[in-house]
Structure formats: structure tokens, C-alpha cells
């Protein structure tokens, strides 16, 4: 009995330490980038530098990258600057969608603006800011791809860089005893995370075929 109690206490402590370590180990990532410091920026993205995106039926091959302070930058004729990456979309006869997700670090979240380009690099469609929604901690936008869209320009949105977003999440912890007496203790807690929209940050992109049948999950 005493042994099982000790084992339970040990497990509980281990669980608590593991939770703390997990919290510490969360991706700290880069600090928010609030201005673009490069000495010179491009007027348009070079198509040859586009990162290829693979198409999957199950969203198993995400393309992941970090937009950092040393990433390439774009500058409009009005002098507005943003950091960017260019993605080459897969070619497919079947309809497919892409989802772009900005993954928060401990203090920052990439402020995305998405523009689809044709094969000549000319903009054909922009995803409106309203289409961005949170899925868990990630800020995401999804879109079906039209036939003439060949590239996706993922650039920072200077209009919202510096704004803050605050989200509250709950955590349910479960600790189980070992030994002859088995019992479970569950505790609930919550934390509030505040992040600043940034010119840089972690981004993941997935492309997946779209199933329009009523039987799809």
C-alpha cells in the first residue's frame, strides 16, 4: 500500500516535471520582427527561387520554413516592405486546396498575406484578411486552387505587424497510479498566451486533393 502510494507520488511528480519541461521546451522561435532591415528589397519575387509544394491525399507532406530577418524582402513602389517566401504549387488535374498556417513562437506570430501568381509571376488573386482563422494556436487560411494559379506568394502583412493577439487555452493533465490500487487524478488548468504579429516566423503549407462526395469524412 505504502509502496503504491510512493509510486503514485513519484508518478505525479514526474508528470508535473514533464509538464513543466514540455512548457519550457515549446518552440521559443525568433523574437517578433517589427521592421524590415535589409538594405535593398526586390520589386517582385524571383520565380526560380520558389519552393516546390507536394500534393497529398492526406496532408502528410507539409512544407515547413522559417521566414527570418535574413529572408528576402519585397518593396512596393510606395516603399512598403515585407519579408516573403515563394511556393510553387503542384500541378494536378484533380481539384486541390492549400492551407497556410503561421505557427506561433513563444512571443511572435507571422502576419501573413497570401497572393496567388500565374505562370508569369503576375498576381491573379489575393486571400482576404477575413479568411484567416485560428485552428488551435495556428493562424491559417485555406483556399481552392484555380487552374491559372502556379505560385503562392507568402509575404508579411505590414498593416498588422506589431498588433497583438491573445488566446486562452486549457490543459487537462492526467496522472495514473501504478501497483495494486489503481486510480487516476485529473486536473485542469489554463494559460493565456499573448503574441505579437511579426514580419517573420514559422510557416507550414499543405496541399491536398479535395473530396466533394457526401461520404467524405
Amino acid at each position: 500500500m505504502i509502496g503504491s502510494q510512493q509510486k503514485f507520488i513519484r508518478l505525479t511528480l514526474l508528470g508535473a516535471v514533464a509538464s513543466l519541461l514540455a512548457a519550457c521546451a515549446q518552440d521559443r522561435g525568433p523574437a517578433p520582427i517589427l521592421s524590415v532591415a535589409q538594405t535593398s528589397c526586390l520589386a517582385e519575387p524571383p520565380l526560380t527561387a520558389a519552393k516546390p509544394l507536394m500534393l497529398s491525399a492526406e496532408e502528410t507532406k507539409p512544407l515547413e520554413f522559417l521566414i527570418s530577418g535574413t529572408s528576402s524582402c519585397l518593396e512596393t513602389t510606395e516603399g512598403v516592405r515585407s519579408l516573403f517566401e515563394l511556393v510553387q504549387l503542384p500541378q494536378s488535374v484533380a481539384p486541390f486546396s492549400v492551407r497556410v498556417a503561421a505557427v506561433p513562437s513563444s512571443t511572435g506570430l507571422f502576419a501573413p498575406q497570401l497572393t496567388f501568381l500565374d505562370s508569369d509571376g503576375l498576381p491573379v488573386r489575393q486571400i482576404s484578411e477575413e479568411k484567416f482563422v485560428f485552428r488551435g494556436p495556428k493562424l491559417t487560411a485555406s483556399a481552392l486552387i484555380n487552374g491559372d494559379e502556379r505560385y503562392l506568394l507568402i509575404a508579411s502583412n505590414p498593416e498588422i505587424v506589431g498588433d497583438r493577439s491573445q488566446r486562452t487555452s486549457s490543459v487537462i493533465n492526467q496522472y495514473q497510479s501504478g501497483g495494486p490500487i489503481y486510480f487516476t487524478v485529473r486536473t485542469g488548468s489554463e494559460f493565456t498566451k499573448s503574441v505579437t504579429y511579426s514580419h517573420g516566423g514559422n510557416v507550414t503549407i499543405t496541399a491536398r486533393t479535395v473530396d466533394r462526395s457526401l461520404d467524405a469524412r
Partner: peptide, 23 residues
Amino acid sequence: VLMREDIVYNRLTDQRDDTVTIS
């Protein structure tokens, strides 16, 4: 099917990334 989404206002756990969540 032209659109399929699940939306949760105040989801207790914030770990899965498929559902649209609102604080």
C-alpha cells in the same frame, strides 16, 4: 460538398489544428 468546417467557440483543448477555434 462545397464547404466543410467545424467551428468551436471556447474549445477546452487547443492542441489539434483541424477545427476552427474562437477564443
